[in-house]
Nucleic acid binder design. Structure first.
Lengths: 198, 198
DNA sequence: GAGATCCTAGAACGATCGTACGAGAAACGA
DNA sequence: TCGTTTCTCGTACGATCGTTCTAGGATCTC
């Protein structure tokens, strides 16, 4: 006797709705009851699908990281080189329509830094996911050390600029600095060994 | 009849102790009673000196920003040019002894991003303080636009690298990227008087 | 149909939350 | 010393917290 099958979609829908709630109402004081009210369900339903509050927070963390990464990784894959990839990432992340989501992203990031045990996976992947994408974007002819160094710098600069943008809202100044940074990437000589990059 | 004078030092001492507590125990679930226990006072004493919990959080925010800025601004003032100043800032901020404090810094930063009304002053000054210091470090011969652009980029890169370092703990990779960035600053031509913004 | 499992809800538990109140000790000017 | 203000404390209030319990439909296999 198998009984009623588990509805995985239901949990996914609730999770997405919870992420939307967190984007709008903040991550700091998230608790069962207000989320349940906003989602039109009972707290018991949330508990049933997520287990404990800690587990719901982890689920929100993970989903948010997925969304943030997905929003840029597509763009990166289509670009011919690192400079174009970096520009594509910056264009997408600096879009004011995404500000609320990235505000939550950094709120989560900060919280994860202070609870590294609980949010270990987030901390691991919040850098590693983008790293591998940006290393790949540099092609197979860039030596590993240079590729890693450059990818690290691109991630750091974009996130730092985004932190500035979200804190000050000063689009002109931050965009100016971003252009300057992207220009250095574009004027950087492509990796030429004996052979041309394929 | 003046009565007993206000003891400002007392509040300052309690605030510093509260910041230390937040560095150690995190910022997310800060509440009167645990802080009071750790400080060896009653919750009433904290309420007396800080008013409401919101006000205590704002006080912690402000004090933390002061400390973070003070730790670097001295160093910046003594340096002959921007490259040296940036290196000095990076050297101080990347010191593992400061990691716990910067973890709190970014936790606070993220929280402030999601409550911009409440923490408006933090968000204003978290960029502006460093900006003015790094613009000054470029001397009076650098034109304003270039100085602003460069300072924005230095702040963003250092903070982005620090985010990476705190999340991954990968000192070698991050330090390598930081060296690469600092090198570009050092090889940048200093502002020639008479000619040449680039 | 019967049996099993999932989904949802309401009620209730003890714990902790922020805050207010009253009172006693301490430190000042008069 | 007296009046006033600060500082500190214990206590208590109502609200909200995360979680558990109980139970009634819903949806599957047999």
């Amino acid at each position: 006797m198998t009984g009623r099958p588990v509805n995985h979609q239901r949990r996914a829908d609730l999770l997405d709705a919870a992420v939307e709630y967190a984007i709008e109402h903040g991550f700091a004081d998230l608790s069962w009851r207000p989320v349940a009210r906003a989602l039109g369900v009972s707290t018991t339903t949330l508990v049933h699908h997520f287990g404990t509050k800690e587990q719901m927070l982890e689920a929100i963390l993970g989903r948010l990281r997925e969304r943030a990464f997905a929003a840029t990784s597509d763009a990166v894959g289509d670009q011919p080189d690192l400079a174009a990839a970096a520009r594509a990432v910056w264009t997408r992340t600096s879009d004011p329509l995404q500000w609320a989501e990235f505000r939550l992203f950094f709120a989560v990031y900060g919280r994860a830094l202070q609870a590294p045990r609980q949010f270990a996976e987030f901390l691991d992947r919040v850098v590693a996911d983008w790293m591998s994408a940006l290393v790949d974007a540099q092609g197979p002819d860039t030596d590993a050390a240079t590729a890693t160094r450059t990818a690290t710098l691109v991630i750091a600069t974009i996130r730092g600029l985004l932190l500035d943008l979200l804190a000050t809202g000063d689009q002109d100044r931050v965009q100016d600095a971003a252009e300057s940074f992207l220009a250095t990437l574009e004027h950087r000589p492509p990796p030429q060994s004996g052979t041309q990059p394929r």
